[in-house]
Write a protein that binds this DNA or RNA. Structure first.
Length: 470
RNA sequence: GCCCCUGUAGCCAAGCGGUAAGGCAGUGGACUUUUAAUCCAAAGAUCGUGGGUUCGAAUCCCACCGGGGGUACCA
């Protein structure tokens, strides 16, 4: 059947609003209140001359009550397909069985579905279908929709929280002539008119610090970044990072900011600073424990090691704990590998792991009193990395030396090593004040707050192999 | 990249060497308070693709394609 589809429609109520306003009605009562709603027909129960439907809109579900004496074109109404969009006007009422309903006194088709909707009870279970046809998943899997609403709320709360602290939001380039700000393999692309190669950004870091140089003292970006790496439950090739930079601050200030922000988000989004993740309780209340990388290795692996430990001994310790290493690794990298394999997966309660070796932290400022270390930290919760932050390296000469070390690593075969960014060094020449910087993996944070185990449940359209239509 | 699992009608799903259950949706019919409505009827499947083994393959083997998980790599 083909219908005249209107160009616009004006609902004046939603399922949620009606439930809130009229939920308390007595069974079998009528209100005299006429409303107009719109949504998708999800269920239908026709009994001869009386029909019921379940309409779902963006807010929830409400029943439609359609007696043949009241509903125009009754036969057409009962012939609607599950999945059709309709607009309905009529009185708000409650049936004898106590179901809040809208009496169908007028109705209009707003879209006809050309494909049959998934099983009305089981929905979709095939993950491939859920990810590829998210437009269907969102209708038939209410939990899926809830996660994305939570994500949206998290972003919105984050923005407001930062703006309240005088951070301003900016947008910096996605096309980078030199990939930088992180250790990762980039995607490449080509601009025809400029006849130039570009890299899709792996981090906005170096541009945001240029803005600190430019006098924007508190700045943040919610940046889609792209890394040419494998896909897993924790990795999507394009993902979202919150990066922020605060002039005159150091990594200690960043720790306070992180624990306060995350605690705030947990309370606002879940009602409590103590959340449940993967069946376990996780208390995100500030303050969080602080411990150095070296302390944690002693605590979890029982090894007393440090940057002063002879390299051969560090290698032996790595072997003892089955940590795979390469010949090119210096003491700093060996310590980091040891930490990542023996400590990180065992950390559940939120913790700041502080003071990373300089060797593996090319953009962090040297520690004020520990030679060879930097003022850098990562926050870990539920065994996952939540953020990475540091007191920013301001010294152009030192930064150049770190870049050059990276270039050497690249020449030695490290495909993720950084290149020298001359313009960034020039910016540093003009003077970067003491600055605290922070990057939070937004997708992973949302996973934690939404209690989901795969990043695909918080990314609407996760990267998949392109579908072949034949 | 490697390892394991997986792919049966639009959706859910059984069958696991003997020639494709069942349910939902769709079609036709009955039914004025149902809510995964119910009842009756008919219909719908190159069992991911291509090879092979076998008298016989959805079932076993190989390759390929898609998906999931793990691992490696990785902010």
């Amino acid at each position: 059947m083909s219908h005249q589809i209107p160009y616009r429609f004006e609902p004046d109520a939603t399922a949620a609003v009606l439930a809130e306003k009229y939920g308390h009605l007595e069974d079998g009562s009528e209100t005299g209140q006429r409303v107009t709603i719109a949504g998708r027909l999800m269920l239908r129960r026709v009994q001869g001359k009386l029909a019921f439907g379940t309409l779902q809109d963006g807010s929830g579900r409400i029943q439609l009550f359609a007696p043949s004496k009241v509903t125009p074109h009754f036969d057409d109404f009962t012939a609607l397909s599950l999945g059709d969009w309709i607009g309905v006007s009529g009185e708000v009422m409650k049936t004898r069985r106590g179901e809040l309903s809208v009496k169908v006194e007028e109705w209009t088709v707003l879209a006809e579905t050309q494909r049959s909707f998934p099983d009305k009870f089981h929905g979709i279970t095939d993950p491939d279908l859920r990810y590829r046809q998210r437009y269907v998943d969102l209708w038939v899997t209410p939990e899926a929709r809830d996660k994305f609403v939570l994500r949206s709320n998290a972003l919105s709360l984050m923005r407001r929280w930062l703006e309240d602290r005088d951070f301003i939001e900016v947008e910096t380039p996605v096309f980078h002539p030199i990939p930088g700000g992180a250790l990762a393999r980039p995607f490449t692309t080509h601009h025809n008119a400029l006849d130039s190669e570009f890299f899709l950004r792996i981090a906005p870091e170096l541009y945001l610090k240029r803005l600190i140089v430019g006098g924007i003292e508190r700045v943040f970006e919610i940046a889609r970044v792209f890394r040419n790496e494998g896909i897993s439950t924790r990795h999507n090739p394009e993902f979202t990072m919150l990066e922020l930079y605060q002039a005159y601050a150091d990594y200690g200030d960043m720790m306070e900011l992180v624990e306060q922000l995350i605690e705030y988000l947990a309370i606002e989004l879940t009602g409590s600073a103590t959340i449940t993740y993967d069946g376990r309780s996780l208390d995100l209340s500030a303050p969080w424990r602080r411990a150095t990388l070296v302390e944690l290795i002693a605590e979890h692996a029982g090894e007393l090691v440090d940057l002063d430990t002879p390299v051969e001994e560090l290698r032996t310790v790595c072997h003892r704990h089955d940590v795979p290493i390469k010949d090119s690794y210096g003491p700093g990298k060996l310590l980091l590998e040891l930490y990542e394999k023996t400590v990180e997966p065992n950390l559940w309660d939120p913790i700041f792991v502080v003071d990373y070796p300089e060797e593996v932290s090319p953009l962090s400022r040297a520690h004020r009193d520990k030679p060879g270390y930097t003022e850098r930290f990562e926050a870990i919760a539920a065994g996952r990395e939540l953020c990475n932050a540091f007191s920013e390296l301001y010294d152009p000469a030192e930064q150049r030396a770190r870049f050059e070390d990276q270039v050497k690593a690249g020449e030695a075969g490290d495909e993720e090593a950084m290149a020298v960014d001359e313009d960034y060094l020039r910016a540093l020449d003009y003077g970067l004040p003491p600055t605290g910087g922070l990057g939070i993996g937004v997708d992973r944070l949302v996973m934690l707050l939404a209690d989901v185990q795969t990043i695909r449940d918080v990314v609407l359209f996760p990267t998949l192999k392109p579908e072949v239509f034949d």
